[in-house]
Each structure stands twice: as structure tokens, then as C-alpha cells.
Design a protein around this nucleic acid. Sequence first.
DNA 1: AGAGCGTCGCTTTTT
DNA 2: GCGACGCTCT
Length: 772
Amino acid sequence: MTLRLIPANDNMSAEDLLNGLNERQSQAVRTTEGPVLIIAGAGSGKTRVLTYRIAYMLRLGVDASHILALTFTNKAAQEMKERIADLVGHGPARAIWAGTFHSIFARMLRAHAERLGYTSSFTIYDADDQLAAVKAVMNALGVSQQVLAPNMVRSKISNAKNAMMSWQEFARRADTIVDKQCAQIFEQYERRLAQSNSMDFDDLLLNMIRLLENHADVLEAYHERFRYLMVDEYQDTNRAQYRVVELLARKHRNICVVGDDAQSIYRWRGADIRNILDFERDYPNATTVRLEQNYRSTKTILAAADSVIRHNASQLKKTLWTDNVEGEKITLLPCRDDREEADAISRTIRARMDAKGLRYSDIAILYRTNAQSQSLEDALRRINMPYHIVSGVSFYKRKEVKDALAYLRLIVNPSDTESVLRVINEPPRGIGQTSLQHLQEHARATNVAMFDVLREADGVPSLQKRTVTAVQGFVRIIDEHRGLANELAPASLAQTYLEATGLLQFYKSQDTDEAQDRWNNIERILSHIAEQQEIDPELTLARYLEQVALVSEQDDPQLGTNRVALMTMHAAKGLEFPLVVIAGLEQGLFPLAKAEQDPKEQEEERRLFYVGITRARQELVLSYAERRYRFGELTFSRPSMFLSEINPDCFAASSRVMQRAGGPSLPPQRPTAAPAGRPSSPFTSRQAQPPRRTSPPSSTNEYSQVPSSDSYGQVPGDGPQYRMGMRVKHPMFGVGTIVALAGVGAQAKATVQFSNGAKKQLMLQYARLEVL
DNA sequence: AGAGCGTCGCTTTTT
DNA sequence: GCGACGCTCT
């Protein structure tokens, strides 16, 4: 957040807290009783309001333990806790329950697991475990993975659960062959997880609903305990989350939800925008507060964001405004390919840092897909610019890390079938596929949990003697170390245990760099456990595992350091940076190709772009590449439609290079044509670059031979000549007539009167107008 | 049982 | 371009 007018001060009164707030913010903070809907535009001080509201309640005498704050990401929860602690001190702050839906619910479910047929040591399955379970079920049912893509089945199941649909209901509604098969898999999947004493992410929500709906005493206890509820990012909640919140808030109705429909970017994961749109209906006496003053961004950035989001049909009414300065215009970096884009970005960053005295940590590069980070990283490394990738999940996705964690999960919860299957032959113990098949079939036939079958492996027919011995050895290691759980601290337990499994030795004995890496990674986990144990002496292995199951890798240690941040726009939500670069603004990438047909998806992509733009405080840089490597091959694309949706006035005036080019057929901008050594305009610095060398020989040749008509941002070849009165078609707005033309080259704009009544000013370079 | 090779799908985004 | 998976060979 931008403002911290009030220093941390334990003596601050409730009234003092209000002093640093604008009127709307103050109203939101003061309204502590009853339902409150806070519609918080980007940069309007949302987190500030939430934390001040909690501090205010504490000052009014509300007991900290009566407050429950639910967030969507760990990052948000963490920030909230810290900022509350800043305001009221660490003591009271600790008593507040603040966390993600999933982590808070997991904690509650552990306390009441027996009521739902689980033990408190249930395992949490992530998407990969989920997928493994789906595949196993499909195998058992004899469904070919060629015919039915396991991932599709997994997401169907997850979507159904997000919508609170049981497998029975799913089966009832299934009317296609595919859905009927999915229903069967769904059923078996649910049984399998239950038998594994495991919950997937969706179960954490669904089981909460079951718990609260079916156990009145538990519900009553939570009503007693949590009298004040706050929900952040309410626009991203799904129906199940909505239901839990509703149950928890039912008695006291002190529920405060904060959200911004314009920033709803998780529809794909079941987020239901109705939750926020319907709040006033669900809680008829709700107070609605609109936070519309933006404290974060310049007028230019806000205008750009606004011009983009206006293209969405459905949204709550609100008008963001700011007292901030006009600020720098937006810089656009048109590039030929991803490598050039990455270089242009790194050079632009360097130039802006020099010009503005920015630090690395003032800068973020945002992109649509994680795959885009590769070329950016390469470019940053080439010029020795420090960076870090935020929210890389990669570490916990590594095979050896997952194996190690699976082993640990097994001593906490031996019923965890997915973990058994994962590590039973890792390192190789001579328990191969055939043996596993027999074991699984036996488990299914006798309806005995996998681990119990392993315990009595000698009772399984058709299993070789040698295999039985191997299985028994595997079981013994786990059982023995389970016994040690009460005697040893988690760190030493994990150490001896993983040594006993042979996993560490397996990697250590191989003399390859890769094995060394893997060994290192397992060691990293062990030291991580030791570290966490330092922080929390009460730590158990179970608690540690829950932590890592629900926390994607957080680069906390690096977050405070002076580095450029690279992340997806999803990961950037809630953050802000003085300088933001959004890369890869191309049709097919952003918006993704998948969204191009579906208007709903397109609107979600647009909201995502809105989120990206509004992360910027002072300056925004946008870039695209005409060609880039995707899926290992060179693909071509046109500039994103979103570029043409930005009010053209927000863009920087054309650089000198651009002015040289005349005529509406758009500027030739060959790198070689630009004189080197110009001052630090992003365009000139980019163009001082020699032609790229990494592209395949053919395309390099192509480059050097292409004459100056090799233009940027325009359909290849000479673009159409636009004239006044011309009938044109826009992919988004439909048919219209050109009523005005202005500017030349890259700055050429047309004002078009569309037949639907809208009059738009469009940059010809990006508008992709079709002449009729 | 396990190594080696070829095929396929993949990248949307995350708890 | 990579990793997961399946098939084949030893």
C-alpha cells in the first residue's frame, strides 16, 4: 500500500486510527457491526481498510480471538497479519485467526476429523496427487487414458466439487457418454480418497460445509468463537466458499466482504462472481461502501486501465479517480521475437532505473504464462540484472522433493495410497508394476486399504516370495519410524527416516550432477524442517506437511532483497511496483487463444490485463513480439487486441525513429536502420541491438534480407490505406465508419463511429480494422 | 524388473 | 522443448 500515515503505536486510540483515512475508508472501518460490502477499486487502500478495521475493533474492545479473517492467498494473509501487528502489536495480532480459506479450514477440520470419518492426520492432496488418483481409478475401471484425458476428468471432478456437486448428483446429470464415464470415475475417486484418509483441496471446503451443516454443536461453537468475519478478495470465492462463509456468519451476521469485480480472475477455478453481485440481496440490511479514490497510480495508468475495463459488458458501477500526477506515458515495445522482447525489456528497465533512480525491487515484469519467464531470465542474466521469480511452484514439483514428502506423509498417514504408490519402489526395491498390480487388485477385491495389504503381503496370492520380502522391508521402515515420532523432533526424525528409506543414499551414490542436485534438494527440505522447527518448537511433522501442502513456494527470503520481480499477473494481484512491464501482449497469448472465441473468457482475460496495469504506480511498459517460440516451435502472432483498447492518448509520443517513417502504411523499424548510441529512449536502445543470433539460420537469413517494409505491429505487407468515411469492421466493436484520422506512422489514429452507437478512437497499428 | 527409446501433450492461471 | 508415459528389449 502507498500510505502509512500513522506509525505503529500501541497508544493509538480508535479515533486516531480514523484520522489517516478518507471518508469512505473511515466509514468502512467504523461500520463494524452487521453485514458490510466494500467494493474496493484497485489501489484504493483495501488492505489498509481491512487492517485498520480490525485494529479499530480491537480498540473498541473486541476480543482478538473473536475475529476471523479469510484470504485467498498466503501472501495476502501474511501481509494482513504483519500490518495488524504493526498497528496493535504482536500480542493481540497473534490471537486473530487470519489465513487462507484452505489453511484455516484444514485447521478446523483436523480438530473435528473423526466426525467426518477421517483421522486428524488426514493428508491433503494437491492437483498432482489428484491426477494420480484419477489415473489409478481409470486403470482400475479399465478406462483408456487415450480415450479420456485424465486431466480433463480431474478438472471435471474438481469443477463439480467446486459447485458443491456430489458424485451422485453428477451421475444423475450426466447425459453424455463422457460424463457418464466421468461419473463412475468420480465415485471411485471419492471412495479412494476416503480410504486413503485424504482430502483434496476441494474437500477442504466441502467437508467444512458437511461439518457445519450436520454438527450443530460444532457450528454453535464456531459461532461463539468467531463473531466477526472478514473475507478478502470476495470476488474470487466459489460457491462452496460462499456457503461456508454464510454458515459461519449466520448467527452474528458481522460479515465484512471486500472485493472488486473488475479484478475477478479465477473464474476458471470456480470463482462465482454472483457471490459479490448478490451480496446485497443475501444480506438485505448490508452497508455498501465504495472505495473509489486510487492512491497508487498516476492518472495516465488509471486512464489506461479504465479504458481497457470499459470494454467489459458486465461490471459493478464504480468510478476510480486519483489525485496523483499525470505521470509518464505508457511505453510500448514492439519486438520481432521473444528474445528481442526480453532484451528490449531489460534495456528499458536499465534506462528507466538510470533516469528515475529506481531500485531493482521497484520493478516487476508480468506475463500471462510461466513459460514466458525463460527468455526474460536469460536476458536479465545477460546484463547481470538481479531478479527473482515469484511464486515458482517448481521446487515442490520436483520428483525427488515429491518423493521425500510422500515418504514423510506416510509416517503421518500410512493410509495415503497415492504416497504409497509413489515411493514403494523409489529407490528401486524390486517391487515392479506387476507386483503393484497384484497388490492393488487384492486391495480392491478385499476392500482393504493399501497399506494394510502391504502389511500382510504374504497373504497376497500370485506375489513372488522375493517381492513379499521387499514389501515387508518397505513396511518395516515406515512402521519403525512411525514409532519414533513421539521421541524425535521432526527434523531428526525426517533425517533418520529418509536415510533409512535409502532415498538419500540412492542419489548420493550416483555420480552425476543431476543426482547431486536431487540430493541437494532433499537436503534442502531437511534443513527447511529444521528451520521451521526453530521458529516453532511445537512443530510436528504433520503440521509441517500441511504447511507445505497449502503454501506454494514463497520466495520470502528474497522478497526483501533488491531484485526485479518476475511473475504471472495472477501472482501479482495485490502487489504494486513503481515500474511495471507487461510482456507478451499478443493475440493467442494474451488473451490466450482459448479465450478468443468465448466472450466470458475474453472478459476474464481483460480483467487480468486490468489487474496487470493497475499494479503500476508510476510507469507502465508494454511489449509484444511478432514471433516467439512456443511448444518448441516458432509461432507468429499479431499484437493483442487489448493494446488497441487502451486510450491512445496514454501512449508515449512517437520516438524519432518512428517519426521518420511516413504514411499510414506504418513505419519501417529495422534495427539496423537505427543509429546506435542514441539517448536512452527505449526504442533506440532496443534498436541499437544487432539482429538476433539465436534464431534458426533460416529466420536469421530472412531477417537480413527483409527490406524495410518489415514493419511492426501491422499485418505483414503494406497495410490498408485508411480514409475518412471508410466502412471498417473491428473484431470487437463490429462495423463502423471512420469519422476522423490523425497522426502518422505508429501514432496513426482513427476515430470510428460504430453502428452500435459507440464512438472510439483507435490506434490503427493495433486495431486490426478490416476495410469493408 | 528395469533400462532405453519413441510418442504425446503440454502451458493458462492456484489453494 | 521438455517431461511424463508406454512400449519393447534385455
